[in-house]
């Protein structure tokens, strides 16, 4: 795309992109560490994750301030307008991802026994997928790659499917042994947080699509999360 007649406008837009890249890097880092902390019951790491969330929040505020100033000052049109609106939206998704990572870290502090092995493995696998998705979507944003964004958008259903199985497994633990309810509830929320991070990632993918094409994706995203309609029944003994 051609450069602006007013070159400062280009610099201001580049600044927004840089802030998104920074926020994205931090969100990835925070999310990865929060899972590591939960999986290894590492309280010290969890504390660090909780303390570091503030950084993402401040970047989001900074981006928002710059974006508002840009709109007021430059009265952007077409692709420029989309770039600014999309930067605001993506930054808010990244900020939420930061919050969810922080919440996972907090649950580490609440769970004081080792996680059941298969649950741990399931959640790790979920997190791995979600991290990969997040990293891919940030890459798609940096390179304006609509195909890659599309890939992320479609692949979210894998996380949903894993969340289903972790959810069912935690239910059986709780039904078998009521003493695990406390821990399992925290883990359930933890798994839900990972699933939500996946959803924010697909939001970002949709925004990249809008940024590049100017249109909204048509149709429904494939969804596999059936937990909200799964009945909880006592085990037949």
């Amino acid at each position: 795309m051609n450069t602006h007649i007013v070159s400062a406008f280009d610099e201001e837009l580049a600044e927004l992109r840089k802030l998104i890249a920074q926020m994205g890097g931090l969100a990835e880092d925070q999310f990865g560490k929060s899972i590591e902390a939960l999986s290894r019951s590492d309280r010290e790491l969890a504390e660090r994750v909780i303390a570091a969330d503030d950084k993402i929040d401040r970047l989001e505020k900074d981006l928002e301030k710059r974006a508002i100033k840009l709109i007021a000052k430059r009265q952007p049109m077409a692709a420029d307008l989309r770039a600014i609106i999309v930067a605001i939206r993506i930054s808010s998704d990244l900020e939420r991802i930061g919050d969810l990572a922080k919440n996972i870290a907090k649950r580490t502090l609440a769970v004081d026994e080792p996680l059941p092995r298969s649950v741990n493995a399931g959640m790790n696998r979920m997190a791995e997928l979600a991290l990969e998705q997040l990293s891919d979507v940030l890459d798609a944003y940096a390179r304006l790659d609509v195909d890659k964004a599309q890939d992320v958008w479609v692949k979210d259903s894998r996380i949903d499917a894993l969340y289903n199985s972790v959810f069912r497994e935690l239910l059986t633990y709780m039904m078998e042994d009521a003493r695990t309810i406390g821990m399992c509830t925290h883990l359930l929320f933890g798994a839900k947080n990972i699933e939500r991070i996946g959803d924010h990632t697909t939001n970002i993918a949709e925004n990249i699509h809008y940024l590049i094409t100017g249109g909204a994706p048509k149709g429904e995203r494939p969804k596999e999360d059936a937990t909200s309609v799964t009945p909880v029944q006592p085990l037949a003994k």
Binding site: V146, A149, Q150, W153, V154, K155, S157, R158, A161, L162, H209, T213, G214, G215, A216, P217, K218, G219, E220, R221, P222, E224
Partner: peptide, 17 residues
């Protein structure tokens, strides 16, 4: 799980002007 993804070839279809 991957089969489920393949079954639904949900593409981003753009609603254009």
């Amino acid at each position: 799980m991957d089969a489920a993804v393949a079954e639904k070839p949900a593409r981003f279809e753009t609603v254009m002007t």
